[in-house]
């Protein structure tokens, strides 16, 4: 592994010394978070992380290091065994039922396997989110074209997912994630199934979204991509978080 070119930009938070104050501009904060699965395996150990509003953060690490678990803690799919997870003012660990739904409406999620619905067209797949959240038809029609344009697929609106390439499918899933304009976008290995060109296209779209103020958190094990995109990075290894300075020599304990 050689990631010498990774340099956190000046505006990025320094994960080396995670601030413990509940700063107003922190949109995501993890405090002493530990996640142990029922089987006893420790996915995350004593994690501290703060992400400011408008940041673009890569979370990297080998598979099984806990990247997906970390994201799942943020949108409430998994619950921390210990510690606190704060997302956009919500204490995720305490959320149940409709409050959890409320949080999830403020988070767009992009998955490695896209999770598109096979028997619905691209437009329907994107509109599906808005239907699910109770938007009316007029609003849905208003929001669809900009979302499709953002990912460069207005001409594929009436295609079915299986007619699209992997890269296009992933772009549809990004459009779906941002169509309700959430302040946070989580992308779990969005480029995991894509070639270099498509991966770069996806990252470009994510950067565009970041530029309009959306906080973007991306997990990936694609080191080249991280180098290329020049954003702040934290590394997970065996459930522990490493700062960029130690990034080149992760110490497994």
């Amino acid at each position: 592994m050689s990631q010498s070119s990774v340099k956190p930009p000046a505006h990025a938070p320094n994960p080396e010394v995670p601030p413990v104050s509940e700063a107003d501009d922190a949109i995501v904060a993890l405090r002493d978070v530990t996640k142990t699965y029922v089987s006893g395996s420790k996915a995350l150990i004593d994690l501290n992380l703060e992400i400011k509003r408008g940041d673009f953060l890569f979370i990297t690490g080998p598979s099984g290091s806990g990247k997906s678990t970390l994201l799942k803690l943020l949108y409430g799919e998994e619950r921390a065994t210990a510690g606190r997870v704060l997302v956009d003012g919500f204490n995720v660990c305490e959320l149940r039922g409709d409050r959890l739904s409320e949080l999830r409406r403020r988070i767009g999620i992009v998955f490695q396997d896209y999770k598109l619905i096979p028997r619905r067209t691209v437009a329907e797949n994107i509109a599906f989110v808005l239907w699910a959240q109770g938007f009316d038809r007029k609003e849905i029609e208003r929001r669809l074209p900009p979302a499709l344009k953002m990912v460069g697929l207005p001409h594929k609106a009436n295609s079915f997912p299986e007619e699209l390439s992997g890269g296009e499918q992933q772009r549809v899933s990004i459009a779906r994630a941002i169509v309700n304009t959430p302040p946070i976008l989580l992308a779990d290995e969005p480029t995991g199934n894509l070639d270099a060109d498509n991966s770069w296209q996806v990252i470009k779209i994510l950067r565009k979204l970041n530029a309009i103020g959306i906080t973007v958190i991306v997990t990936t094990h694609d080191e080249a991509l991280i180098r290329q995109s020049n954003h702040s990075v934290v590394q997970l290894c065996n459930g522990r978080l490493y700062s960029p300075k130690r990034y080149n020599q992760p110490k497994a304990n």
Binding site: Y75, E77, G97, D98, L100, S101, E102, L103, R104, R105, R106, I107, I109, K115, I117, F128, V129, A132, Q133, R176, N180
Partner: peptide
């Protein structure tokens, strides 16, 4: 997907 995007 509905659960993940916050449908009640």
């Amino acid at each position: 997907v509905m659960q993940l995007v916050g449908a009640t």
